[in-house]
Design a protein around this nucleic acid. Structure first.
Lengths: 337, 337
DNA sequence: CTGAAAGCGCTTACAG
DNA sequence: CTGAAAGCGCTTACAG
């Protein structure tokens, strides 16, 4: 059977309360006492029982990561493993653990009960939700600390985000500078904020340069590879010479569609992606794209959440990370214009 | 503040013990009483505090899923999201929650303490570990229920596995039947059981048909796309006419290498993969591969683990799922031989 | 700086 | 079939 605080206390010749203080970094412990207790803890590889701590103190050092299971992109877009990994590592580094929730509508009620009422989670990180998702509403109405991946258009919540609008803008502008006139776009879902904002950037670039917006050059998709493929096939009917795709993974699908149609990149169609996932540089040709710091964002979300848990009631945190245009070979060069 | 058992008991006019019995499905409750209590629970959307239950009963309805973070394939192989999803859904369906651990050597000690001593997990599922991983040793030496994805060559443990040896055998045999003489293979890591077994199947097919084993036709890789690419480039020097690749994702990399080398599939080189991930059918050409029931395996692992938790001390469970050759277009047809 | 004691919200023998 | 009570292993005012 695992040891208890009481056991450690006995070994160290102090009370159970003192051991607890040592573990929790209370200042009111004599240095000598602290050292002795720490030694005994080390020797016995002691780990306090989380359930007991949770019950007594109301905290668990566990946070939840919610990703909607409906997002089919979760299977083709390395964005998700990267996100999960960076969150998991950042948690470990702060002595927290990660509980993963793939939100299925079917189990949503159960999930929300667990999250809000079971006392299991100190806080939660939410990624890739639809803006109108009831989960966000439920969290917003509770006092459970949470941070969103991606800003929210209506609610004042804590969030981490990238400069998505500027990303879409820079990508489109890059294509314009290369002389393209018929620039299409494959967007993410318009009920997801990242999908919406990247498309907004595209529109702004057109407006700014006085280019008429043409609805037939827009295909909404779902951030998945096969979605990008299907969207590209639809756009092909309208003969764009360039295309801004709102994720690298969709860009991969789009390039597959172009290849199947016998078109060359960049000679026939130029492409800019979004994300700068590692495989972007391995595509054929290597993909020009907008880089966002996915790895950093996971860690930042964790640290922000922990900060909120420890200092509740302060102002909402809004963190927006810079993007950057990475030029490779999928747009050709200036001379082609 | 969340409600407690005591609150529900008061509303229903019974004792706290009775409410607990109702929640835990104890038979010793009068039907009428049960109904009344359930109503009150429903009305109030009551969720028992997990920490308190854990402390009192020694169970949490939380299981851990451990995946080593060092596996770079985690970013390119949809196998992992599928696995995570199927485990997560199966857990939810059984009223369990999933705790995700991406095992970093750096945090291994912390992780093992949490898993074995914090009382947070009722059991754990371990995927894609190296056979000699100390985590498996530690679990084996503990009394924490666990099931492995993939058999263990030395320890008598609970596991779910696919017929990997037969899969490698069938894949290789298929290529032989098509008349190929120089059949190469790209293997998974030989310190992972799936990598080892699939390679073993390849060797058995050669032996059975009296074909000499040629070490230069074997390239060990890491289950990632870029690993498959690099391995294929090495093999190209030895001019194989066919190749068995131990995962679809590596096969994707291999096909990219062939394309870059100006070789056609299947005319110049025939390929068989392993997994039958959804993108296998979308490759160019569609990939002939060995199908394994990944989705089922996650659910089966969860159900097996829960069974072990509830009925400890019984014999070890060994579940091996059948594979199946799926013929598409990456090997050409019999007439080509 | 330290200890004795109450209490967190459940489960589960025990008694009836 | 039901309730009173002990106990799970911690944390944290409170007292000294």
């Amino acid at each position: 059977m695992p040891l208890t605080l009481e056991d450690i206390a006995k070994h160290a010749g102090v009370s159970r309360a003192t051991v607890s203080r040592v573990i929790n970094g209370d200042i009111n412990v004599r240095k000598q006492t602290r050292t002795r207790v720490l030694e005994v803890i080390q020797e016995n590889n002691f780990q306090p029982n989380i359930a007991a701590r949770s019950l007594a103190a109301g905290r668990t050092n566990v946070i939840g990561l919610i990703i909607p299971a409906g997002v089919s992109a979760i299977f083709t877009d390395p964005y998700f493993p990267y996100l999960i990994q960076s969150v998991s590592l950042a948690c470990n580094a702060k002595d927290y653990s990660t509980m993963l929730w793939l939100a299925e509508p079917e189990f949503e009620r159960r999930m929300m009960r667990q999250i809000l009422h079971s006392g299991l989670l100190d806080g939660v990180i939410v990624s890739s939700m639809l803006m109108e998702d009831p989960i966000i509403q439920a969290l917003y109405g509770s006092r459970k600390p949470f941070v969103l991946f991606g800003r929210h258009p209506k609610l004042d919540v804590n969030y981490i985000d990238a400069e998505n609008v500027r990303g879409g803008y820079e990508a489109t502008l890059h294509l314009m500078r290369l002389g393209h006139k018929r620039i299409a776009t494959i967007t993410g879902p318009q009920d997801m904020i990242a999908g919406y904002d990247r498309f907004e950037g595209y529109r702004r670039a057109l407006v700014e340069r006085g280019v008429a917006f043409q609805p037939e050059l827009v295909a909404e998709s779902d951030f998945s590879e096969s979605g990008g493929y299907a969207a590209m096939r639809r756009l092909l009917l309208h003969r764009p010479t360039a295309i801004f795709v709102a994720s690298d993974t969709m860009a991969e699908g789009a390039m597959r569609a172009l290849r199947d149609a016998g078109l060359r990149v960049p000679q026939d169609v130029a492409i800019v992606g979004f994300d700068d996932m590692p495989h972007a540089s391995r595509m054929n040709p290597p993909l020009t794209t907008i880089r966002q710091p996915t790895g950093q964002m996971g860690a930042l979300a964790v640290n922000t959440l922990i900060d909120i848990i420890q200092n509740p009631g302060e102002h909402k945190r809004h963190i927006i990370l810079p993007i950057e245009l990475v030029i490779r070979e999928s747009c050709g060069t200036l001379s082609m214009s």
